[in-house]
Design a protein around this nucleic acid. Structure first.
Lengths: 341, 341
DNA sequence: GTGAAAGCGCTAACAG
DNA sequence: CTGTTAGCGCTTTCAC
């Protein structure tokens, strides 16, 4: 692999001139420029960007901490990040953290060791052990999707509370009053906010909130299936289920149908995220659409602003949601189904 | 950010000693080692890995060209790669290529510019424009999942032809003789191989191959839906559909049900990949399971072998498949349904 | 067991 | 407009 010196020698100029020809061609006379360009071609010279980065102290790498790349929603977010990053010359170091704190810490440290310039965290967990000081030395990080209260960290989020309220209102308008909720992981702020939004709507409608109608899950198809299983076993009088994401909703529908229930005639099911499958399930899923790609794009742009010192660290972006009413929700039956029939 | 010089000064030793303390502690006297270690702690010194990489000429980065990260199957492959790479100290530069040749070329060039050591390509397309020479200077690349005939490139693949034969035999055993196929993109070798396997099985069973029963698709839910739509419109006598991936199968099932058809009583549908959703659809999908994570893991390990000069470039790994029979395929009806009824 | 010094490939003063 | 040179942070001979 030829280096800048080889080009300089072949062109009969100094390395500085070669560098300039590449960086600021205007400062080089056309004649010299031609010689250099020709030498570069001849040697098929490519600048060693490793050296460039080393020297500049910038890596043009961004670490992205993703709980699971296997999640369809995150896949869309990643696509958005990818495009925004590429546009600015950054590469993404994607890390599938599996929600593991140690993994996150480990990879976030790539910033400390000058392997990356900043971090985008898609989960609400601060990957740095340092106590949040008012010190300006905080690592450049942006938090997206699942958002954290950290005051020093720009965030991109959805108004999860209001979105959950909207979905709950949709169910209430359909006549549902006994609504179960299939929740995400306890530690997730998403879960907390969506539950608050759920409660808001109940309260406005004058409906009681029942703790026993809350079912734990973890955003996987399987956990939705299992929660439905528990709901059926307990045989509680319920006419609708608000699932905190689409995968759980799809898993739940699967279980309900196995039990001989019709969706939505016997029980309505709603999701959250609007993944591609939501439109092809039977029945198609009523859900909340999130601008996933925009999450990614915004997160990267925010981070780049931070890296350039352009942005205040307190920037909070809230993206809009959209309730997509499909066929999985319908009018409440007169009386709740008896699951054990 | 403190550097090795600062540590050396504080410890009252030379930079060489600091470096040795980190790299080959045995060569340093315990007393000095203690001084250095203490200085490192005191300054919270982290070696600048950018500099290390620059000097060593190794980046410990691997570029991964993924057609779409949004594809559930690839998401699993990525997880496998991630783990194997981390184990060897490599980071993954994930690129969502959208199947675009230019994007692939551009990112593959990161190897040329010393930003990455090698490439894993998940699509059967050679990202380097250079004519394949017998020159040893070929870029370190491994091809996985969709495999290429390139002689100089290690590959990890499934025996797609045999898998397709197995699936077709399964359908034939159920009494189906008029089987449609929903294909992937024309350019994909997967499509070609799976079609060959399909034909193999037909031939062995003495069944005719009908060109008009082949429907084009592109592996998305939507394309499966559309292919089913065309099949219905043409009203061909068909009792089963072999889809080349699960997403198309799920899209097709959606369309068939809209048309009032029962799966599998009126028409059987099979997929390929065994994504998570395949087990939660209605009906659960009969499909071919691929060891996705193992694809990723193997690809990375193969690449690392190449990078270390350990491996011959001709290495071809073939991973096993597994036919998972669920409820979307069943006995053929006596007479094919009339779609226009 | 330790230090001095060269050098990886490049860019940016600074001179000329 | 072009060349000389220092130096980014680190590892690695080669002396001592």
């Amino acid at each position: 692999m030829s280096n800048i010196r080889a080009v300089a020698d072949l062109a009969g100029v100094s390395v500085a001139t070669v560098s300039r020809t590449l960086q600021q061609p205007d400062l080089v006379s056309p004649k010299t420029r031609a010689k250099v360009t020709s030498a570069i071609k001849q040697l098929d010279y490519k600048p060693n960007l490793m050296a460039v980065k080393f020297r500049s102290g910038k890596t043009y790498n961004i670490v992205v901490l993703v709980p699971t790349v296997a999640n369809v929603f995150f896949a869309r977010v990643i696509r958005g990040m990818q495009e925004a990053a590429a546009a600015e010359g950054y590469a993404l170091l994607l890390v599938n953290t599996m929600g593991d704190d140690d993994t996150e810490q480990k990879y976030a440290k790539m910033v400390h060791t000058s392997q990356a310039d900043g971090v985008v965290q898609l989960r609400a967990f601060n990957p740095f052990d340092e106590a949040p000081s008012d010190n300006d030395d905080l690592l450049p990080m942006v938090n997206a999707c699942e958002v954290l209260d950290a005051p020093n960290c720009p965030t991109v989020s959805l108004d999860n509370r209001r979105a959950a309220t909207a979905m709950t209102e949709h169910l209430i308008e359909l006549g549902h009053s006994r609504i179960a909720m299939f929740k995400g992981p306890k530690a997730s702020p998403l879960t907390r906010e969506r539950m608050l939004g759920f409660k808001d709507a109940l309260q406005v409608a004058g409906l009681a909130y029942c703790e026993e109608l809350m079912f734990a899950g973890d955003f996987t198809l399987h956990s939705g299936y299992e929660a439905a299983d528990r709901l059926i076993a307990q045989n509680l009088p319920v006419t609708a289920v608000f699932c905190e994401n689409d995968e759980m909703a799809l898993g739940a529908i699967c279980r309900f149908k196995e039990a001989g229930l019709r969706v939505p005639e016997d029980i309505s099911v709603s999701g959250f995220d609007n993944i591609a499958f939501a439109n092809y399930s039977d029945p198609p899923l009523t859900t909340i659409a999130q601008p996933a790609e925009e999450f990614g794009e915004t997160a990267i742009n925010l981070l780049i602003d931070v890296l350039k010192g352009k942005s205040k660290r307190a920037m909070k972006v809230i993206l809009p949601f959209d309730l997509v009413a499909r066929k999985s929700t319908g009018p409440a039956p007169k009386t709740p189904v008896n699951f054990t029939q």
